[in-house]
Design a protein around this nucleic acid. Structure first.
Lengths: 173, 173, 173, 173
DNA sequence: GATGAATGAGGGTTCATTCAT
DNA sequence: GATGAATGAACCCTCATTCAT
């Protein structure tokens, strides 16, 4: 039963993430439940209200970003290469949705903490890349993060598509 | 009376555009009417439904983009300079909202037509810039448009902020 | 149109008062609307939420109590007679429901004010009756009010039914 | 195991009675179960539905009233004294809740039977008190019961508070 | 037997849209 | 033409009840 419940919880998060990715974050609780093959009541047993569901989804998706960011920056390879790797992996994530969800959950401290952690690590990485001499040094890391965000927050983005190429070219030294 | 009606129509579009810019495209018809100092009935006299209002707003905003794009590309100045001028002017527009509205009105042929016109002119301009030798030639104009879109569709974007600078630097030859 | 709206507002209050009197204060907004021959939306146009409706009903009913209490105490007749008159008129009112509604609207200052006004006038009246020598003097007016409340807050209470008689007899001097 | 079940049953009734007394009869089945340290399922094993639980609680509380009423009327002391004793004991009971529960279970014959039994015994007692000459004889016992009900069904009632005093004074001979 | 997860009808509320004035 | 009242579908959420474990 515990197993079933956990499976359902994950089913809900996954289903909701998919629906949100497809149709925007406006999808109704009813629709999510139906798509998951569950009753609304079950949704509400797992998540006390819509906000909680949004937070859970954000947590899940942002968690994956955090995980591979941590792994990547911990590697012992040139910083520029790490940067590319992260960009590569980012495009696998529904980053635009994540941003929307983060904007919709301003009061969740855990999310704020994760956001900050990811940003801090990225900025640290970018600082190292600037010292390494591979990254344009005249822009503060914080803004480069925003810039990369823009590069990566598009449907169908890829590391080697033109847009990302231009941005990376504009950053490379 | 005809004049009154036209004035009301414009008042509605302007008011709605402002409200949408401030508070997102979720503002209710009632709120729009109230903010315009009118009754909902009047709003519906001018626009048969919400969709029609969205289209009118999109038309209005996209129209301004189209107007100054046409003017800019018609000028007899170096293409790169024209490009910068357009970017400068774009950031004055609620471009993010325009994109949202365009995505929400996929069935309106007039909007499609304007979108296409603006894009075509921009692409033509970019092609000329590439021939002129001031614009990186290895990316198809169509994608450069998308790239500029990204540069410009941020709250508080400016031609000379870091992000736009990097992108323009990445494009300049 | 203003007339229609006012009529509907009153229709809603009346209908709700009736339904509440019949079936308790748990009747749903939908039921009230249906019983009034209106859509739910109309209810909500007149009363922003259920609480507001409850307050309006309480205001209406308590208002009638206040009106005749004021009139009665202003009369130039023996205080005991005034007291009986008030009791007589009270039993016409859905007092039990009023009490419930007052308990359910603790935050409404207007209701608190009316409640206080009515109680103050009654207590003043009772004080005069005690000085007049017709009312048992060893109980504070405040508690006699409560006592009369009890006498009168029953379905089908009458001034001359046994219960009220006993209470009045117990109070008479 | 049978003992466990009986203990659980009683635990539920007691807990529910407490919760209802504190927070009104609107407490949810889930809350009751949780407060009893049980799962809802267990609650439903003992009581097929909410109604059945209400009836069980009413039975329990009314049972205690019946028990001490029977004991009191069987005593060989002056009837007026018995009457006072009963009133004294009544105020220990959640009488207001009992009335609510009785009103909510109109179809339960056992409850009707107990109600009738208690009333009959009280009325008999009151008849004897009238013959004894200590109780006002001009009101039918049935109505005096109702009157005492009113005296006693208040939060914080006591035999010697003003309200009860007035009522008893009004009844004493 | 006990548990608590799942269910879905029902309640409060909002809002695009219609229509009487 | 303008107004704003009326409408009802749709949304979020709760809770009595059922049922798999």
């Amino acid at each position: 039963m515990r197993a079933d419940a956990r499976r359902n919880r994950e089913l809900i998060v996954t289903t909701a993430l998919d629906l949100f990715t497809e149709s925007g974050a406006g999808v109704s609780m009813e629709e999510i439940a139906r798509a998951a093959g569950l009753g609304v009541g079950t949704l509400y047993r797992h998540f006390p209200d819509r906000q909680a569901l949004l937070e859970a989804i954000a947590l899940d998706a942002l968690g994956r970003l955090q995980t591979f960011t941590r792994a990547a920056v911990a590697e012992d390879t040139p910083r520029w290469q790490v940067l590319r790797r992260i960009v590569e992996q980012c495009v696998e994530l529904p980053l635009a949705l994540i941003k929307t969800l983060l904007a919709a959950t301003p009061a969740n401290p855990e999310l704020r903490e994760m956001e900050h952690d990811v940003n801090a690590r990225l900025e640290h990485l970018l600082g190292q890349a600037q010292q390494e001499g591979t990254l344009r040094p005249d822009i503060p890391p914080r803004e480069i993060v925003e810039l990369l965000n823009v590069a990566v927050c598009r449907p169908g983005a890829r590391v080697d598509d033109h847009l990302t190429t231009v941005i990376l070219d504009g950053l490379k030294r």
